[in-house]
Design a protein around this nucleic acid. Structure first.
Lengths: 345, 345
DNA sequence: TGCCTGATTGCAATCGTTTGCATTTTTGCA
DNA sequence: TGCAAAAATGCAAACGATTGCAATCAGGCA
């Protein structure tokens, strides 16, 4: 009974798990099978067809581990999401998740697989070296610098194929892709002031450098225009945000008429709290967010915000990483944010 | 000059990449190093310490590919997101992304890595076999059945370690975790009718079986209560949804007073369109969504919806998969959805 | 000191593919 | 038909860690 017969009869054909098994059936050497399946080599067309037919019939697929070991490359890009401050936040953060989705798209297109790892630096100092040194990935993309700026810098000195989503600091050594947060902050503050705000507040945690830069930009503009601005630490864990914001609103009631939220997520929550308090937006209080998430156009009223181009960011991350895999020491890429004027300011 | 001296001088210590390198330095055999680093074996305490010290000093980490090849397991779970209908949709879909985040958490906790692969079945019929047969993953989680029910069934017959997020059909062969979509649909319709709706519409694509089940549930209740219900195909790609919904609303104007949206994303867009048209929710038109995404509590008015417990789903997926990795042939897990009454119905 | 036992360690095969080089087969041409 | 060149294939050595089994070592006891 041939294997083809076996298949017709619904019997599982002889198990062929390795190149050698297949080679035996085809009556050739494993090397030839390897070449035939790789496609590119100089194997006789008829031989190749025969081998491919057998491979198809048996659903054979070469063992990747062995292949990777031999070729010393994995075809996998690691994506690390460090959860520094606000542990529960980022992994469910819409912005990061959307970025991740686009990364998956881009990498797949370039023929790479994506290995996702969520890390809690506080629990494991060695997270980045471990990921890199694991030998499981050809390169690494880090989503968000969190509070790990220094560690990333250290690693960057000895490891080329790494690109980070985050904020660009003057003179930093690691390659980063991200929006010009400071400029974004300026745009937000300018808009708030232009639409009549006389006293601003920044709603967000100023620890992460991305947010710090947004605040700094807003502060710069505020100072120039002679408008006061105060920072109100607000965290991103879904459980706490609402309450924190409520508290802040109570505190600033009547004293502040322009709010710059560090992220749209915060802005949206803020809008809701304001609505519940019957505070009219934008008449009594103006609000500008940051990110331009899909929801931001759906709020009532629709949110004025600073857009980060997530798709472009993902594309940039992947492009730079691939160039680094080729050995090039790429520069950082800073994307310009855009003010999207809707109805809250 | 010893390596320690070299380090003190800021010189990079001798490169040690393999167990053999390290073994030479330590003056033992590679086997011993392997055992020492694995920790569990019976190696002399002093030897182990010495080896660990050297490993630390050189930042040595065993090559995973070799290890995996030898041990015939990868420690990696593949997560596939098939993008059947609506290609651009799911990867950026909040629900799936949130589920993915929770999966990452769960898997990390259990010591597995997560390999993400977005697949377009229409472009590559062989997606699932390819993923499984790649030898890169110990097991597979499929997020969403999309239009691939049959293919998944076929694969399930010969491959145990696979669990799927999706809908449970009577008598199906693959192990699935998911909400009871039919029940969810019932809850939604009951609520709409209870709050006074006299004529219903279902906003969503009825191709995917999850959505079909939601619609079926609603239809059953509607029939029982003698209320008409019609399905209005609505896709999920962000670009098209808004327009499609607008068109539907024009069409049903005055004829329908209760909308059951297949997902919260659709519901939120719908609310926005209604707001723009000045239609009062819930007075003139009632709306119920599905998922209970974080945004759903932030809309104006807050959305009444059917909650799926995403965290529980992720936990279920991972638990079942791990049991399957042990050889157990687990049953499917159907989670009960819960009606969350807010203000739109 | 000599022998036995148990604790350590070393040896070498193995996981399955890839690939440089050697060998065989085919082809083209005189 | 014969021979060189080209094409196709086979051989065997990697890739680097793991692990069963054998060998060695140390300690205990007579």
């Amino acid at each position: 009974m041939t294997d083809t017969d076996a298949k017709k009869l619904g019997v599982r054909p002889t198990k062929v798990r390795t190149l050698a098994d297949l080679a035996k059936i085809a009556g050739v050497s494993p090397g030839t099978v390897s070449r035939a399946l790789a496609g590119n080599s100089l194997v006789n067309a008829k031989t190749r067809e025969k081998i491919e037919a057998i491979a198809r019939e048996h659903g054979f697929r070469p063992n990747q581990m062995a292949s990777k070991l031999r070729r010393q490359k994995t075809g996998v890009i690691g994506v690390a999401i460090p959860l520094g401050h606000d542990v529960r936040q980022q992994i469910s953060d819409t912005f990061f998740m959307t970025l991740l989705g686009h990364l998956a798209d881009e990498l797949t297109e370039k023929g790479y697989d994506l290995m996702l790892r969520r890390v809690i630096p506080a629990q494991n100092e060695d997270w980045l070296d471990q990921f890199i040194g694991s030998g499981m990935v050809d390169g690494v993309i880090v989503i968000g610098q969190s509070d790990q700026f220094e560690r990333i810098e250290e690693v960057a000195d000895g490891y080329l194929p790494m690109v980070v989503w985050g904020n660009h600091q003057e003179g930093q050594r690691h390659c980063v892709v991200g929006s010009d947060n400071r400029l974004g902050g300026k745009l937000a503050a300018e808009r708030l002031i232009a639409s009549g705000a006389k006293s601003l507040a920044f709603l967000g945690d100023t620890q992460p450098i991305e947010f710090a830069a947004r605040y700094a930009g807003a502060k710069e503009v505020a100072a120039k225009m002679g408008v006061p601005i105060l920072a109100l630490p607000t965290h991103l864990s879904p459980e706490r945000t609402g309450e924190e914001i409520a508290e802040h609103l109570r505190e600033i009631k009547g004293k502040v008429d322009g709010i710059f939220a560090a992220t749209d997520t915060i802005a949206v929550t803020c809008l809701k709290e304001l609505r519940e308090r019957g505070i009219d937006v934008p008449r009594e209080l103006k609000v500008v967010g940051f990110d331009d998430l899909p929801i931001s156009s759906q709020t009532a009223p629709p949110l004025t915000t600073v857009r980060q181009d997530i798709a472009a960011g993902a594309k940039g991350l992947v492009d730079l990483l691939l160039r680094r895999l080729e050995g090039e020491d790429t520069e950082s890429l800073v994307l310009p944010p855009h003010l999207i004027v809707r109805e809250t300011a």
